[in-house]
Every structure is written in C-alpha cells, then in structure tokens.
Computed example of a mutant assay.
Amino acid sequence: MCGTEYRTELPLASAATGCACCSTEASTPAAAADASGNEFAVEGLTCGHCVQTVQKAVSALAGVEFASVDLVPGGRSRLTVGGNADSSAVREAVTSAGYTLISN
C-alpha cells in the first residue's frame, strides 16, 4: 500500500485541561494506592512522558518498592516513593533525569 498514510487523529484538549498527554489526572499504580511512602515535591514535569521518566529513574533505585507521580503540569508535582530508598539517592535519580527535587 505505497503512498497511503495512516494517521491516528487524537482529540484536541481545551486550554483549561492541557494537551492529551498533560492531563491533570495522573494514574497511580495499585501498589501506591495500597501503601504509604515518602513524599517529595518535583518541579519541571509537564506531561505523561515526564512522569514516566521520573518513575522509571526512581524505581531503578535499590530498596524502592514503587514510585508514583501525581502530575501538576507547570507546578510542583508529588512523587511518592515506597520502600526504604535513601533520600539523597532519590534526589540524584530525579536530578539525573532532568528535573528538580524541591523537598522530601
């Protein structure tokens, strides 16, 4: 089928809710909903890809049972980390992923 393009049309989001990947409703893994963890404020996250990048970086740390981000596009997002990971290791993982950890 040469010359035929296949495109998936995505719905446009209104300016109030952001783009489709920047929804203010972040999905939370089941482990995060069942367990409490340490909370951190993270700046610089703007979309679902940012969330995945931070969750992947933090989840790779020794002692981390889960990492979950509640996205606030353009604001301070909440990172919840379950397990016994060192706070400085979490800070380093977030920073090396390209984002700023504000507090722990």
Results as ranks from 00 to 15, higher is better:
12 L>R: 11
39 E>Q: 10
3 G>L: 13
10 L>A: 12
1 M>V: 14
14 S>E: 15
43 E>R: 15
83 G>W: 02
35 A>K: 04
32 A>G: 14
78 R>M: 12
44 G>F: 11
42 V>H: 07
101 L>F: 07
79 L>Y: 10
57 A>E: 00
2 C>W: 08
88 S>F: 07
86 D>N: 02
17 T>C: 11
72 V>A: 15
90 V>I: 14
86 D>H: 12
103 S>V: 04
21 C>Q: 12
65 E>C: 09
91 R>T: 14
54 V>K: 08
31 A>Q: 10
9 E>G: 05
7 R>Y: 13
49 H>Y: 07
82 G>K: 05
102 I>A: 01
46 T>L: 06
3 G>M: 11
7 R>G: 11
103 S>Q: 00
82 G>Y: 05
13 A>Q: 07
2 C>T: 14
61 L>W: 12
65 E>A: 01
50 C>F: 00
12 L>M: 02
28 T>I: 01
100 T>E: 03
67 A>S: 10
28 T>R: 15
43 E>N: 09
94 V>E: 06
62 A>F: 01
26 A>I: 08
29 P>V: 15
86 D>M: 10
91 R>K: 13
37 G>A: 02
56 K>Y: 02
21 C>F: 06
84 N>W: 00
57 A>F: 09
3 G>N: 15
64 V>G: 08
13 A>K: 12
86 D>Q: 10
76 R>N: 15
53 T>H: 03
39 E>M: 09
39 E>L: 00
86 D>R: 02
101 L>V: 02
58 V>N: 01
71 L>T: 07
86 D>K: 13
29 P>T: 12
27 S>C: 08
29 P>G: 13
68 S>M: 05
82 G>W: 04
48 G>P: 07
22 C>N: 04
27 S>N: 14
70 D>Q: 01
91 R>C: 00
2 C>L: 12
67 A>M: 06
73 P>G: 03
86 D>S: 03
73 P>F: 13
13 A>E: 13
23 S>I: 03
2 C>V: 10
10 L>H: 12
96 S>H: 14
5 E>G: 09
16 A>T: 00
13 A>W: 11
81 V>A: 08
67 A>V: 02
88 S>G: 02
56 K>A: 04
32 A>M: 03
11 P>W: 09
70 D>V: 08
42 V>E: 05
13 A>Y: 12
93 A>V: 09
85 A>W: 01
70 D>H: 01
71 L>H: 01
21 C>R: 13
66 F>I: 00
17 T>Y: 14
8 T>Q: 12
40 F>C: 05
63 G>W: 06
56 K>E: 00
74 G>W: 00
98 G>W: 11
53 T>P: 05
89 A>W: 04
14 S>R: 06
51 V>C: 08
69 V>W: 00
46 T>K: 13
24 T>M: 03
7 R>Q: 07
18 G>S: 03
95 T>Y: 03
104 N>C: 05
63 G>T: 11
